[in-house]
Simulated assay, not measured.
Amino acid sequence: MGYNAMDSRWLHSPGWRLRWTWAEKEVIWSIIGARSTEQGDCSRFEGNIPHSCMKDPKVVDLPLGTPYNMQIANCCRGGLISSYVQDPATASSSFHSSVGASGNNNKTVRLPKNFTIRDPGLGYTCGPAKIVKSTRFRSASGRRTTQVLMTWNVTCTYSSFLARKTSACCVSLSSFYNKTIVNCPNCACGCQNSSCLKKDEPSSASIGSPSKSSFLQAIQCSSHMCPIRVHWHVERNLKKYWLVNVTITNFNYGMNYSDWNLVIQHPQFDNLALTFGSNYRSLTSPSGINDTAMLWGIKHYNDLLREAGPFGQVQSKLQFRKNSSTFTRQEGWTFPRRVYFNGDNCVMPTPDSWREGSSD
């Protein structure tokens, strides 16, 4: 079973792909809830043929709608794994396999190695398998418990630096009390070139099939060239409250973002009173400081951020209680310190850009 312990990162379509290298000559006799993409050379077997004889099998999840007799719990969602905060029930994925030629006791079984996972791109680095306490299973009647021969854990960590050479999003800022709009930094996610598409004039030939390379070619031309822009606008300043409007705009003609999320850091989240147009959860640090919040779309309302164009935008409003001892409109205090979209750190305007002023 695989668990996604990250608060804000999903494993999106086309889903996870798990690969490892067997220590000896192990084979996968059968598998439920997933499948190996290649069978490999099974010529040494007669009669019953294994599901996979690959030295380094690559296993993928089964799609939605898989027959029940081929399913187990937490399988068969096309490799999609949600973030733990948004949907704990779908933040794990499982499959069951029967392995042969692997030894018959915990002294002869050898741990697999070289684990990799992709979702669908680069970014994850997996450590070695480590033996942990053997997993125990309770029967359906609850009267009997069985224990597996051996259990091991593999931990994979994500790095945006490995995943891509450029940033995936940027942040722009504005307020009702200043005419200046601080746009995303120029070339925040790369600079304009002939492959970008003019606004509202996407070419189906340019977009092509939804592959990683086509996504890069389907970005709307802009000064920042980011697929996603997050705009933070201080909307109103009332006697007891102040309001912020957050707008997420998709500049990618070749991709929509289902189940999007934002993580925002601001010292006033401890005084957040209401949210409109999004779900909210505080991500309080271990030290007890409540300065970070996670926002995500409301199911069947705005949880889908569509591709660039007239519908490629979602909004959320935040209402903060005003703390007279800390609230100020000076030095950009009302703006966020950091913003993450789907787990990726967004490029922020430079600290002095608000004072200098800039417009696109």
Rank of each mutant, 00 (worst) to 15 (best):
Y3G: 10
R9Q: 13
R9C: 07
W10C: 04
W20L: 07
W20R: 05
S30N: 15
R35A: 06
E38T: 14
Q39D: 07
G40R: 07
C42E: 07
H51L: 08
H51A: 14
H51I: 08
S52F: 10
M54F: 08
L62A: 10
R77K: 13
V85A: 11
P88T: 11
T90C: 08
H96S: 12
S102W: 06
N104H: 09
T108V: 09
P112C: 10
N114P: 01
D119K: 02
L122T: 07
I131Y: 03
S134K: 13
L149Q: 09
M150F: 05
T151V: 06
W152P: 04
T155V: 14
T157H: 10
S160K: 06
L173V: 04
S174M: 06
S175P: 00
C184T: 05
P185E: 02
C187N: 14
A188G: 02
C189Y: 02
N193K: 02
S195C: 01
P202C: 05
S211F: 01
Q217E: 05
A218H: 01
I219C: 00
S222C: 07
M225R: 00
C226E: 01
C226S: 01
P227F: 01
V234T: 05
N237W: 04
K239D: 13
K239I: 14
Y253A: 00
M255W: 01
S258M: 09
D259K: 12
W260A: 01
Q265C: 04
F269Y: 15
L272S: 14
L272K: 10
T275A: 14
F276C: 06
S287N: 15
L295K: 05
H300S: 15
G309M: 07
F311K: 09
G312D: 02
K322P: 04
R329P: 00
G332D: 03
G343T: 08
N345V: 03
M348C: 04
P349H: 02
T350W: 01
D352Q: 06
S353G: 04
W354Y: 12
D360C: 10
